[in-house]
Write a protein that binds this DNA or RNA. Structure first.
Length: 426
DNA sequence: TCTGGGGTCCTAGGACCC
DNA sequence: TCTGGGGTCCTAGGACCC
């Protein structure tokens, strides 16, 4: 038996926890650069504000209804997420943190309890410890637990907890779920299914298995099996190491100068290096991309990307920055108005697995592997200082965000991670 | 004028190995 | 005249997730 705990309107709820006056107002949270709506309170949804809508397009509506609008405050949401997950882990030891606002719990060993009662306790406890409202869906497979959670969210009479156990309960739930609302069925597959008159989850459950396997591949076949109560997706208690790490941003204004782009790309490479070190991993490949606005006329559009292998697997900021600069030089085209850039690292190996003596060395690497030792110590010191005094306390000189800094005009305080932010509020 | 960021998995085809 | 079987790795493209 799986439970899926999902926070309600997570980002909007985080803003409300520290600003109780917002409980009476619709709340929305914007994407980076204050671009699109990415979270809405129930009241905001009721006003017809769509997910992913550009903010400038619904500005009149936001104003008319005095909607509270926030820039994305990832420091706050990330920390609140950790608190929610810690509370859950105290109540159910087998937990898979699935996303920033969701976790699967293995309820198998709770079979002798009243599951619905226990789920209510989970809700109360999370609310009490963090202020975040959650819903709980429970069923014999992860996909069905997702279905159950959705029902708990949509129908107030469940009071936030929906358990699907008997065949009759499961069948009724499947009939009330459209294919596009099933976990793993996106836009394209919905279209395909609807063309085949497969409209509800109940329809998909009984669709010809060979057809599903052929058109929706192994992924779709698993979804179908899960809808039929056959569990194919086990709990993943340990998060696997990341296979790729990406840092990218849209710019607050158009950037035309190569030097400004260099500062942006250096900053992203530096951030990728920090993320790699946090994972205790090394990257062997790096991709750099720069892009104009996709909304430009095609004559003014450019999407440049380049991938190169690093001289040897590394998480050293200096080495990564150097590689990124070289790639940017090859990509840069003068006369374009750039709106976005990013750095992606891949070919990731755990740090312990790599040693210059056990791995093939680059024929062309300029440095002797022994010199990496010292650089690695510099990075350790940098990370320690930034940990203690806040990220950005020390950085490489090439990292600079003055020219391209994204808009963040409605940022709330980092209530749970920065003393200074709280002092300013009071 | 203004339009997000960060991931995963699967498939198919080509190049290569013994 | 007859010309196999079993693999891996890489890439691009397409789908999906939050």
């Amino acid at each position: 038996m799986f439970a899926l705990v999902d926070c309600n309107n997570f980002y909007a709820s985080c803003e409300r926890v520290f600003n109780p006056a917002l409980r009476l107002r619709p709340v929305v949270v914007l994407s980076n650069n204050d671009g699109c709506i990415i979270a809405r309170s129930e009241e905001a949804k009721a006003l017809g504000i769509q997910m992913g809508m550009p903010e400038f397009k619904c500005r009149p509506l936001l104003k008319k209804h005095e909607v509270a609008v926030f820039s994305t405050n990832f420091a706050l949401y990330g920390d609140m997420s950790t608190r929610v997950m810690m509370t859950l882990a105290d109540l159910v030891p087998e937990i898979e943190v699935y996303s920033i606002d969701e976790a699967f719990l293995d309820m198998t060993s709770f079979a002798r309890f009243d599951l619905t009662e226990y789920a209510r306790l989970i809700r109360r406890r999370v609310r009490q410890h963090t202020g975040i409202p959650v819903c709980v869906g429970m069923a014999p497979t992860k996909t069905l637990a997702k279905v159950a959670n959705r029902l708990a969210k949509k129908n107030p009479h469940y009071q936030g907890v929906c358990l699907l156990r008997s065949n009759a309960e499961i069948q009724a739930a499947l009939e009330r779920t459209r294919v596009e609302d099933i976990w793993g069925i996106g836009r394209q597959w919905s279209k395909l299914l609807q063309a085949k008159r497969i409209e509800s989850a109940a329809d998909l459950a009984v669709a010809p298995a060979a057809w599903v396997r052929k058109h929706l591949h192994i992924v779709g076949a698993r979804i179908q099996a899960e809808l039929n109560g056959k569990s194919c997706l086990p709990m993943e208690l340990v998060r696997p190491a990341k296979q790729s790490i990406c840092t990218s941003r849209s710019f607050g204004r158009s950037v035309t100068l190569q030097e400004e782009l260099q500062e942006a790309v250096a900053t992203f490479a530096g951030k990728c290096a920090v993320k790699l070190r946090k994972e205790n991993s090394l990257a062997s490949l790096m991709t750099v991309f720069i892009a104009t606005s996709p909304f430009n006329d095609s004559s003014e559009r450019y999407w440049g990307t380049r991938t190169a292998s690093l001289p040897c697997p590394t998480n050293d900021s200096l080495a990564m920055l150097k590689a990124a600069q070289t790639m940017l030089d090859a990509l840069f085209r003068a006369g374009m108005s750039y709106k976005k850039a990013g750095v992606i690292v891949s070919g990731i190996v755990p740090k312990g697995a790599y040693s210059p003596y056990s791995t093939t060395l680059s024929l062309f690497a300029e440095e002797d592997p022994a010199s990496n030792e010292q650089e690695s110590k510099i990075m350790q010191v940098m990370d320690a200082i930034n940990q203690r005094y806040g990220s950005g306390a020390v950085r490489l000189a090439a990292e600079n965000s003055e020219s391209w800094k994204p808009h963040q005009e409605r940022l709330s305080a980092r209530y749970t991670t920065r003393w200074n932010d709280i002092i300013e509020v009071n």
